[in-house]
Design a protein around this nucleic acid. Sequence first.
DNA 1: ATCGAGCGGGAAATCGATTACCCGAGTTTC
DNA 2: GAAACTCGGGTAATCGATTTCCCGCTCGAT
Lengths: 338, 338
Amino acid sequence: MGVTIHDVARAAGVSVASASRALSGRRKVTPETAERVARAAAELGYQPNAVAKALRDQTTGTIGMVVPGIGNPFFTTIVEAVERELQNSGVDLLLCSSRYDPQIEARRLGTLLARRVDGLIISPCDIEASVPAVLDAARRVPLVQLDRHIEGGAADWVGVDDEAGVTLAVEHVIAGGARSVVFAGSRLVSSSARLRFSGFERAASRAGVEVLPPLLGEFTLEWGVEAGRLLLDADRLPDAVICGNDEIAVGLVRSLRLGGARIPEDVSVVGFDDVGHATMCDPPLSTVRQPVEEMAAEAVRLLGQVKAGDPRPAQRIAITPRLVVRQTSRPPAAGGAD
Amino acid sequence: MGVTIHDVARAAGVSVASASRALSGRRKVTPETAERVARAAAELGYQPNAVAKALRDQTTGTIGMVVPGIGNPFFTTIVEAVERELQNSGVDLLLCSSRYDPQIEARRLGTLLARRVDGLIISPCDIEASVPAVLDAARRVPLVQLDRHIEGGAADWVGVDDEAGVTLAVEHVIAGGARSVVFAGSRLVSSSARLRFSGFERAASRAGVEVLPPLLGEFTLEWGVEAGRLLLDADRLPDAVICGNDEIAVGLVRSLRLGGARIPEDVSVVGFDDVGHATMCDPPLSTVRQPVEEMAAEAVRLLGQVKAGDPRPAQRIAITPRLVVRQTSRPPAAGGAD
DNA sequence: ATCGAGCGGGAAATCGATTACCCGAGTTTC
DNA sequence: GAAACTCGGGTAATCGATTTCCCGCTCGAT
């Protein structure tokens, strides 16, 4: 089923070396041979075997990407951004999902390494459990972490400054008059979850407002709905809820409204990410925007510089996010400082 | 950077043949050699080179999957289902997005073929423009179309019976009392778009109800919102809207309600797919459920049977969907036939 | 004692593309 | 006119794992 370069060479009446040279153009051949080889290749429908080329060249022209889940719009957005970034470089992306499971993640990394990818971009699902597999992979090929990262700072990373982002959100709701705040996020299993939560705690305590016990579940719409119910069940509602991502925020807004709360009059809600349906939410969601394109571009750029097992200290590139104020949060109080 | 089987063999003091046999277990070796090879492999951190293995074996242990877009929850759901279906079979999935562009799709197919995937699962983005690339690929490797398909019926396919599904939806809203209906779907560029629309027209005209001009745009939430606005701008609202997928339906429900229409009292809305946020919609969406797990399983099974360039007539497996009635459609009129 | 079977191991071919190396013919240079 | 050089082309090595083919040894049967 495979037309090889030998077939092409035979059909053109030249050696495989000439055929290869004619097709790749990496050494001159006479116009005549070029012509005959080209014709033979076209007639036979020759398509070079990338596997053989990869073995010989010791490079596959692929990079692997591992994300926790492709059901989450944030990750699909970032995957698409990386794909766009790569599309004219001749490199193909091999995309894998770890389904939020460090074991599956390790297996995926293993098969990507076995397939000799030239580099890896990974958003490790677990800040602790992902450590060995990620460090091991980083020892073998250039590796850049994107968005999430493992603890310890031993591998290069590109992402958003989570703490700065959450701080923007907290200061914004406080400027809008909030006196009691709560954080609705995910269990502290990923770096994003941890940093957004710790950023929240720090900013809120610095501002001196009342901090209610956090609601930590999953980065999903369902958990947002659940969290909203939990808030409604309590004695009183907080003035503001800072959410770990937009999906939680959308679910939360929905269930709070269903419970009779007015958004933003009774409760301000701020999300994180600004991808997917934040603008289509009702009302449109105030949120912290992740500069996804920029992050993807930076990750690809950095990947080009990283060498496997490089003893040089790892780089950590934290891009500062921007707050996008829409209609789920009260604007700064009139006459306020800003 | 690569430990090869030669290194392992040398460290164990045996030939590469013995090392290979010890590691694969495909021929007996003495317990002693087995032990020494295993130890040497472990100590050196040997990981077989899948590229070399693929070249030698003439099989890569991968299958390629090409979908129009990973931003659409229906496709991510079906990708996840295929992944689950494959996870214990030892084959890896190489996932690509065509971004709804037949040119990108053809390029992706080309590189997957160059990488010598053992099979292909594809949801062709365009019913016409995708034809040459899909047929060409089907000539080289086993190929199964999943969900969408090209015209002409020349390549195997597994999917849902779109016409039957839409018919269920139309009959349901009519049983609920609808006398005027409209279809809000996507432009007729894919098989799904065409069949759902034609199924709608047939079912509606057979039932003898009034059929308003269709609204054809994209399979997106945004288009659903826009379609809702268009309906509101007209003289009067239809009794029911059948949507091409759930995203359109969710957007449509939202904008109709924003315009003051009550769902389902004033307008019944039915979606298609039943993935993603249909249950989380407000109110929960009535929709036609695609049996995604079953489709994925069937596709993988069929792929195992298909041979490249098989002259045998292509199979078309259409699974009949089920209507899931939730709260965006009026229930059958009391005293009705059912 | 001999023949054959069975067993474990090694050398080398194989997969397909690329390229280092070599060769012969033609051209330039002193 | 001979040495040096250029140019196009061919042969064979290379990448790493697997497997075919062959060899030598042992054991059992006759």
